[in-house]
Simulated assay, not measured.
Amino acid sequence: MDKRVRFDFEVYFTNGGNLKGEDFRLDIMGDDITDQELADYIIEDLRLLMAGKVNILNKQIFSEPHKRKSAKEHSPTERLIDLSHTIEEGLITYKGLPAPHICDYLSRRDSQKFYDKGTEFQIGSIEMVTNTGTYIDCPFHRFENGKDTDEIELEKFAELDAVVFRIPYSETLEITDEHFRNREIRNKAILIHTGWDRHWNTETYYENHPYLTESAAEYLKDCQVKLVGIDSHNIDDTAGKSRPVHTILLDAEILIVEHLCNLDKLPDEDITFTAAPPKFKGVGTFPVRAFASVKQTLQK
């Protein structure tokens, strides 16, 4: 049997005044709905502006055939997918570089002497190289006069239209320009899903990994892509000492994100990509919380 909810509500506006309703009835999906979901639905459905505190009162769930579209069908039309690895004490991202050291600068116990009884805080201390975890490369990483994380415009980090390329490492480690042809990529973020992230934090991860060729980098530059991300140990072939892909892309101010994960959870398109670092002067690489926003179709 379908479920409905009966409730009263109070909406208080940030510019003064309020709106109250009694004995509202609404179709719901499932057997329950939270007060927060009801509050969000009221604000959206009534197109209320400047809404502040919302109280849901006298809520009752009962069985009755649905009358209209349910509240839970008004859930957000986008969902966020985390594409970053977790950084933790002792993590080795790149052999030869030190692992991060994460500890208390001020512990909760030590902080108690500064505050009233029952109030305490923790202030952390982190010592690490900037090439740790999932990170973004800006031109300064490769070029002395290139832009650092402080100088890159915010729009180059956030909400970039993105496309995913499926190039399994089991089929090839060498990713060429041919892999990117016959798809619309101009002005987009290119996310390369090889599946190599399954080896993260193992000895296998560091050697014989997928990489882009120089021809691939030249093609992506010519197509004026915004950013290139990969779920591999390095976007260049680390078997040699040259780094043509970093050189070509960063010289064109095409940002690079390495050590992505969870790209298998994304569709091939209709997504946006964000990977924003803190604003540091004199730093060309820094860890990011990379994520994708995936468009969803509302249930009818």
Rank of each mutant, 00 (worst) to 15 (best):
T34R: 03
T130K: 00
F280D: 01
F7C: 02
Q112A: 13
D150G: 00
S242P: 03
A239K: 15
G195F: 12
E178V: 10
P277K: 01
H66G: 08
H246W: 12
L227K: 03
I92R: 00
E218A: 09
L97T: 15
R47C: 00
E203S: 15
D251S: 07
E22Q: 04
S215T: 13
K117E: 15
D236M: 12
G90V: 13
E127M: 05
D110N: 05
P100I: 07
Y206I: 07
G284W: 09
G21H: 06
M50F: 08
W200N: 02
F291Q: 10
C261G: 02
R198W: 03
Q36S: 03
D31K: 15
T149H: 00
I192G: 05
F114Y: 15
Y219P: 12
K59P: 10
K67N: 01
R47V: 00
Q112E: 15
L266K: 07
H246I: 05
V5S: 01
E155N: 04
Y135S: 01
F114K: 02
E218M: 14
T238V: 13
E153S: 06
K67R: 04
S215D: 15
T204I: 04
E178M: 10
Q224D: 13
D23T: 05
K226F: 04
T172E: 08
P76N: 08
F280R: 14
Q60G: 02
P277V: 05
A99C: 14
D264G: 11
L173S: 08
S107E: 14
A239H: 15
N234R: 00
